[in-house]
Computed example of a mutant assay.
Amino acid sequence: MKKEFGIVVLSSILWLVGCSDHQENSQKNENSSTEQWSMQPKQEAKESIMWSSENNEVQLTPKTKVSDGFSGATVAVNNMEKEFNWDFTSITEPQVYYTDLTGDGKKEVVVIINTGRGTGLTTEEVHVLNSEDLSEINVQPFEDIISNHFGSHITKKGENLDIQVIVQGTEQHLNVVAQDPLVEQEHLNFGGVVYYKLDNQKLTVVLGTSVGVSPQYVGDVYITYQFDEAKNEFLAHQMKFVPLNK
């Protein structure tokens, strides 16, 4: 049974200074900076720009430099290379890994790219490639996982919000003072903070949950993936909700 939930639509993001504390704690190796968005002609990326896995088995080279990042990229591994139509920002460098993520004894290429960054917002994509032919292995979208395994309901009590969260049948309650006294919504929002991490050959996505148009983050949902050999897909295996400031 599907649960109702809110999704923050990122139709456009300006690269601004001063991300929220939640965002700063979520991202590693990122420095605060002011980025002024401006229209500039597209140009081919310099050949010297390249990112590699730890031991240089995999190389990721951007194709075209655009005003806010790069459009298109080439992945090279095992004397093969393939071009992908990935768009990503230049604010955060891509993460490139070469590891056995499926558990079959063969290593896969894993690329994590930043697709949007702004005040209180940061979004990433993950791409897992078969290193034998560079075909992409599907990773279950977080929207599908939230829709089927996460439920929330918000009750407003004066300036306070009573938030009920249900994750895989486990219920939690938290009480939050609303930063915006006019906020009106029944369910938590998702989509403003989405970042992936790879740890001990496990892929996890962390989702910020928020209320309000100017997002007030109240907690994080951690989803750990597991490879389904029959479906040739990474599916949600474990989920947990962790309230902020608790």
Results as ranks from 00 to 15, higher is better:
residue 199 D to Q: 07
residue 127 H to V: 12
residue 221 V to W: 00
residue 169 G to T: 09
residue 142 F to S: 09
residue 107 K to L: 10
residue 153 H to M: 00
residue 146 I to Y: 00
residue 23 Q to F: 15
residue 63 K to E: 11
residue 143 E to T: 12
residue 67 S to E: 10
residue 72 G to T: 01
residue 27 Q to E: 12
residue 15 W to T: 08
residue 8 V to D: 08
residue 62 P to A: 09
residue 95 Q to I: 11
residue 112 I to L: 05
residue 195 Y to N: 06
residue 88 F to P: 03
residue 129 L to V: 15
residue 103 G to A: 03
residue 162 D to W: 01
residue 222 Y to G: 00
residue 109 V to S: 14
residue 206 V to C: 14
residue 113 I to W: 03
residue 180 D to W: 13
residue 213 V to L: 08
residue 118 G to E: 03
residue 207 L to R: 05
residue 45 A to T: 08
residue 176 V to A: 00
residue 104 D to E: 11
residue 14 L to D: 10
residue 71 S to T: 13
residue 185 Q to V: 03
residue 95 Q to S: 11
residue 51 W to T: 04
residue 236 A to E: 10
residue 40 Q to F: 09
residue 88 F to E: 03
residue 77 V to G: 07
residue 216 Q to W: 13
residue 118 G to L: 01
residue 108 E to F: 02
residue 230 A to M: 10
residue 183 V to Y: 04
residue 199 D to W: 04
residue 187 H to I: 04
residue 174 L to C: 02
residue 74 T to R: 09
residue 18 G to C: 07
residue 46 K to E: 06
residue 8 V to R: 15
residue 7 I to L: 13
residue 18 G to S: 07
residue 214 S to Y: 13
residue 57 E to M: 13
residue 30 E to Y: 09
residue 190 F to D: 03
residue 129 L to Q: 13
residue 163 I to E: 00
residue 145 I to Q: 06
residue 56 N to W: 00
residue 15 W to K: 14
residue 65 K to D: 03
residue 125 E to P: 07
residue 109 V to F: 06
residue 149 H to I: 00
residue 8 V to Q: 06
residue 107 K to A: 07
residue 150 F to Y: 01
residue 202 K to S: 11
residue 96 V to C: 12
residue 143 E to K: 14
residue 155 T to W: 00
residue 24 E to H: 12
residue 96 V to F: 14
residue 21 D to A: 04
residue 76 A to C: 10
residue 77 V to E: 06
residue 165 V to A: 09
residue 40 Q to G: 03
residue 61 T to S: 10
residue 115 T to Y: 04
residue 162 D to E: 12
residue 246 K to W: 14
residue 174 L to N: 00
residue 152 S to H: 01
residue 202 K to G: 10
residue 219 G to P: 07
residue 62 P to C: 06
residue 115 T to F: 07
residue 228 D to N: 06
residue 17 V to Q: 08
residue 206 V to N: 06
residue 207 L to Q: 01
residue 57 E to N: 07
residue 126 V to S: 05
residue 173 H to F: 01
residue 154 I to L: 02
residue 230 A to N: 15
residue 115 T to N: 08
residue 42 K to H: 08
residue 213 V to C: 04
residue 44 E to W: 08
residue 138 N to M: 12
residue 152 S to L: 01
residue 178 A to I: 00
residue 148 N to R: 08
residue 37 W to N: 12
residue 64 T to G: 11
residue 44 E to C: 02
residue 226 Q to P: 04
residue 203 L to W: 08
residue 23 Q to E: 14
residue 7 I to Y: 15
residue 94 P to V: 11
residue 48 S to V: 15
